[in-house]
Amino acid sequence: MSAPNKSYDPVEVEVLKPEAVEKARDEALAAIAAAADLDALHEAEIAHAKDRSPLALANREIGALPPAAKADAGKRVGQARAAVSRAVAERRAELAAERDARVLVEESVDVTLPWDRAPRGGRHPLTTLTERIAEVFGALGWEVNEGPEVEAEWMNFDALNIGRDHPARSPQDTFFIDTPGYDPDVDDGRDALILRTQTSPLQIRSMLTRKPPLHMVSIGRTFRTDALDATHTPVFNQIEGLVVDEGIGMADLKGTLDYFVQEMFGAGLTSRLRPNYFPFTEPSAELDMQCFVCHGSSVGDPDNPCRTCSSEGWIELGGCGVVNPRVLVSVGIDPERYSGFAFGIGLERTLMFRHGIADMHDIVEGDVRFTLPFGVEI
């Protein structure tokens, strides 16, 4: 009896033929090599190396072969799949390296670029000017007072000898606040509320609650019904000084103002007083200071004009005078025993001529390009 013919293989599976396996392998390798980035490689891997790929499907058909044919087919398919897996790994490493190199170029940070391209600005010059003035008078032992911006009409006007018929008390000049129950024909103004038009009410408050001697400087915002333009603003800052003691007169005022001018604008400068009228001082004067740029040398010299003082030699600062005895009486201070002086200066105006600022809008609009040149001056 003859033995069985084990070399005979009656089963032929098309996808397991050598030429079919080689074709699937070559197509896979070509697709992998053509992948331009990691996403394209991922797509090629799914199509040619994962469970639904031609080689994976061919591997499943090996079980249908006779035992004698399984080893050869399994070796052939396994070698093809291994080649594809190696190609995927190598191509992935290449594409990852290319991606990392590209990121280093495209997303690099140039550490030599300016780090402060967004300007940080600076302290507002009004703030530094206010603090400087407070330091000047603090060195004299004066107190710096602050108080409410919403003030009683009596404090702002009546106590300062500003009568009911004075133009400053009209709505054209003053912001009045609706005060329930207030009758201007009956009440004396103590119950009416306004936005203070000056910082003088702070001095009235101090004189009502304290006894002389008094040495103080009042700093704060004030309000008037002016339209905002190049030289006016409805909200502005003011500083007012007050001294009340025995034997105080114009000589003390002049000496104090000369000290202030020299401390703020430079040694050797002086001030002058021009007669004027204010209800709360008597006698009263306008305060001028010698021009801190030309020191008066530009007066009468057309070849050497001064833009700061317009070649006048003097710059107007504010008003001043000896405290009117009526103001002292209104706060309960004996004018026969005590006297005093007072002065007021607008900070915005001082800032404008000190730094050559031509437009009030620059001061109040908060543009960082305005404050930046002033830096962090202290």
Results as ranks from 00 to 15, higher is better:
303 D>Y: 00
286 E>P: 02
269 L>C: 12
274 R>N: 13
251 A>G: 08
284 S>H: 09
256 T>E: 14
286 E>F: 01
304 N>V: 00
256 T>N: 15
237 N>G: 15
245 D>P: 11
245 D>T: 11
297 S>C: 09
307 R>L: 14
265 F>Y: 15
289 M>T: 11
307 R>G: 15
282 E>V: 01
242 L>A: 01
284 S>W: 10
267 A>G: 15
307 R>S: 15
234 P>M: 03
244 V>L: 09
232 H>D: 08
292 F>P: 00
256 T>A: 14
278 F>K: 05
241 G>L: 07
246 E>S: 13
258 D>S: 09
278 F>R: 06
271 S>D: 13
298 S>W: 00
288 D>S: 02
306 C>W: 12
307 R>I: 13
285 A>D: 06
232 H>R: 02
261 V>N: 06
243 V>A: 10
265 F>V: 07
276 N>W: 04
241 G>V: 06
301 D>P: 05
229 D>P: 04
226 D>W: 01
243 V>I: 11
234 P>W: 06
294 C>R: 00
291 C>L: 07
291 C>S: 05
278 F>Q: 07
291 C>W: 00
310 S>A: 09
257 L>I: 02
281 T>E: 03
308 T>P: 08
250 M>T: 14
238 Q>I: 00
244 V>E: 06
259 Y>H: 15
266 G>E: 05
243 V>W: 07
255 G>K: 07
271 S>L: 11
231 T>P: 02
248 I>L: 09
306 C>G: 13
229 D>C: 03
232 H>G: 06
301 D>R: 09
296 G>K: 10
296 G>W: 15
273 L>M: 12
295 H>R: 15
227 A>F: 10
250 M>E: 15
256 T>P: 12
298 S>R: 00
225 T>W: 09
300 G>Q: 08
296 G>C: 15
277 Y>K: 01
275 P>Q: 03
247 G>K: 10
277 Y>W: 13
235 V>T: 15
268 G>A: 05
270 T>Y: 12
229 D>G: 02
280 F>R: 00
242 L>H: 01
274 R>D: 14
306 C>S: 14
252 D>T: 07
302 P>A: 03
268 G>N: 02
235 V>Q: 08
242 L>R: 01
252 D>E: 12
245 D>I: 08
253 L>W: 08
